[in-house]
Simulated assay, not measured.
Amino acid sequence: MKYSNFYSVFVKLLILQSLAVVVRCDYDFFYFVQQWPGSYCDTSQGCCYPTTGKPASDFGIHGLWPNNDDGSYPSNCDPNNPFDPSQIQDLLSSLQAEWPSLSCPSSDGTSFWTHEWDKHGTCSESVLDEHDYFAAALALKSQANLLQALENAGINPNGSFYALSDIDNAIEQATGNKNYGYVSCNTDDYGNGQLYQVYICVDHSGQNFINCPTNGVTDQNCPSSVEFPSF
């Protein structure tokens, strides 16, 4: 009888553990996040260019992050599937150009990509394996072309200030969605709000821009007039 009770409890624990993993690693959509290097560097902490040299004056990828409709998100879903550089060798030059690391000390980007895959990518591996995950992010960046969309609206990275509403409108045009996501801002040493990151909602497959399923998400830490610094 004691053995039977122990076995029953053991099986229940395994089932609960399995359910916890399923819940933790499920997701409803992605946030595709890009950051403006000029704003990243124009802070008290500064930045370091990659070992491959100064990136282009363009938005860089920060990540492709699984999220849930209720505002929660899974993370670090599969420690048994760590980042493997050999899986993305054919994407390496594109990643260095479009997904550079600006953190210090200077690096070739591998530690950045490792972090993004281990924390976020492993939570989407039922849909996107490692190669597909990074390829999807690169394709989304090309599809949105944020810098071109902003410049088409007369919003240029030259240190000028622009209405946040105009920035939102330009990104809406680029994505084709009124509720595309949101903009987040940081501040420079003078306290000016800067256009820093753009969050765009992407469907479960990681391929298509969508209207965000979350409610009440607004631009983060942004004044009504936002600086777009040069880089």
Results as ranks from 00 to 15, higher is better:
76 N>Q: 13
76 N>F: 13
77 C>L: 12
78 D>H: 12
78 D>V: 01
79 P>K: 14
79 P>N: 15
81 N>L: 07
83 F>H: 10
87 Q>P: 01
87 Q>H: 11
90 D>S: 13
102 L>W: 00
106 S>F: 02
107 S>T: 14
111 S>M: 05
113 W>F: 14
121 G>C: 11
122 T>L: 07
125 E>N: 15
126 S>F: 12
128 L>Q: 13
128 L>W: 03
128 L>N: 15
129 D>Q: 13
131 H>V: 10
133 Y>K: 02
133 Y>A: 02
135 A>W: 04
135 A>C: 08
136 A>C: 07
140 L>D: 11
140 L>N: 08
140 L>R: 02
141 K>D: 05
145 N>R: 08
145 N>V: 02
146 L>C: 04
147 L>V: 10
150 L>S: 00
151 E>M: 04
153 A>K: 02
154 G>E: 09
154 G>Q: 08
155 I>L: 10
157 P>L: 01
157 P>T: 00
158 N>T: 14
162 Y>R: 04
162 Y>E: 11
163 A>Q: 15
165 S>T: 14
165 S>P: 01
167 I>P: 00
168 D>A: 06
173 Q>A: 09
173 Q>L: 06
173 Q>M: 06
174 A>F: 09
175 T>V: 08
180 Y>V: 03
181 G>E: 00
182 Y>T: 01
184 S>I: 01
186 N>R: 10
188 D>Y: 07
